[in-house]
Design a binder for these strands. Sequence first.
RNA 1: GGAGAGUUGGCUGAGUGGUCGAAAGCGUCGCACUCGAAAUGCGAAGUGCCGGCAACGGUACCGAGGGUUCGAAUCCCUCACUCUCCUCCA
Length: 446
Amino acid sequence: MHDIRLIRDNPEAFDAGLARRGLEPLSASILAADASLRALQTEMQASLAHRNEASKAIGQAMAKGDKDTAEALKAEVAALKTSLPEQEAAEREQLAALHDTLAALPNLPAADVPEGVDEDGNVEIARWGTPRSFDFAPQEHADFAPALGLDFETAAKMAGARFAFLKGPMARLERALGQFMIDRQTNEAGYTECAAPLLVRDEAAFGTAQLPKFREDLFQTTDGRWLISTSEMSLTNAVREEILPDADLPLRMTALTPCFRSEAGSAGRDTRGYIRQHQFWKVELVSVVRPEDADAELERKTRAAESILEALELPYRRMLLCAGDMGFAARKTYDLEVWLPGQNSYREISSCSNCGDFQARRMNTRFRREGVPAGSHHGSGHHGHGHMTKKGANEFVHTLNGSGLAVGRTLVAVLENYQQADGSVIIPDVLLPYMGGITRLTPTTN
RNA sequence: GGAGAGUUGGCUGAGUGGUCGAAAGCGUCGCACUCGAAAUGCGAAGUGCCGGCAACGGUACCGAGGGUUCGAAUCCCUCACUCUCCUCCA
């Protein structure tokens, strides 16, 4: 959600930001609507003031028992009975229209985000690890994993395409990955483990900006709730409509949850294998921070995600997304792409974004900045107010989110990177404590 | 699923259709007293929006949204949430 005041103050910058997103300039029409709305509000408030004044006088006249005066005043205000509701209705309508316009616009890219219209404009920032050299032709997981217990046909019988049924050590391995990740984020990266609702209301989906534009990507329940497409929805909305104490920031939350995506519009993409499913597990990392801390927090968060890949010894690269490829709510995003030898390519496994105050405005999440001692900038001499602290105004927080990591895709990466010539898969060392003695997935013929 | 009770400012909690943005207490902040603190006394203090260079003025907000009325925290409707009892259930 955009701040109308920023658009008023600097319409050129706003349009330039939209242009980087590949959108037409809108400041002129927005400002025209804004001016019209404000004129209407001024007019309406004058009517209200008139009415309130008269109503007060009526009350006083009635109190004195002066019925004639009261009746006269009532007649005078009667004219407002038709005009005021009209003004109010028009105001409501214009306000809603302006709100809808602003709510449908994506966040503006940060200054250091590269230009570009699609993924070809993304910039590789760093690369970690060396892809393993195989003495056999590495397979795609979709080809060898079914023999290890990753079963798409069984799932299709009950649920259709884009679902999987995991059996035996394969199911255990996926669970191990999730446990490992959330333990790591909780114990080492300083995130607080949360267990949150998987179904949320409209307001929450609006807050993180899945609504109103992307409803077709979500599943909806019969009672109108939405299945979360990411626990970013549940975690970020934990602070909706809050005024947080300064001392509570930064807030770092993590959760291991299933995610549900309709994958509308991705027909034909990644139809084979476990890359793109309607349901998948993910460890999410959400931060709520002071504005000045957001940039550093994005780096910190991205490192928290990368540390999982490094612990699993999975080669990856860090991409800085270009303006045209970023998600709706983001002002800057790093994607982590893991090496998949079976596909001979890097594939997205995590996305870490700084959303600035974009979601905070939608959720109305603010914090009250602690006052600084007056005169602390000057250092000396000044007293009298020397001990006074000035409470700052409420400010919007900044929010960040990132995957740490997508569990399903990490399973794919482990399978493909740790595959052996005989079709088995060696369990990475860091997962062994979670595997109950299993050290290798071995193919079965059945 | 059935029956009932609630939702008021940072917290507790009054509130009659007519100077109610809202009593009171607690907490917070400032000042006084004190070497300092406690205690005490005095005082201050909500948020959004509109207009204004500003001082300031106007307007809205008593869970949310509608309605009745000249006027709604107060009356009516819808919704959300909380609590109690019953029922059901992992």
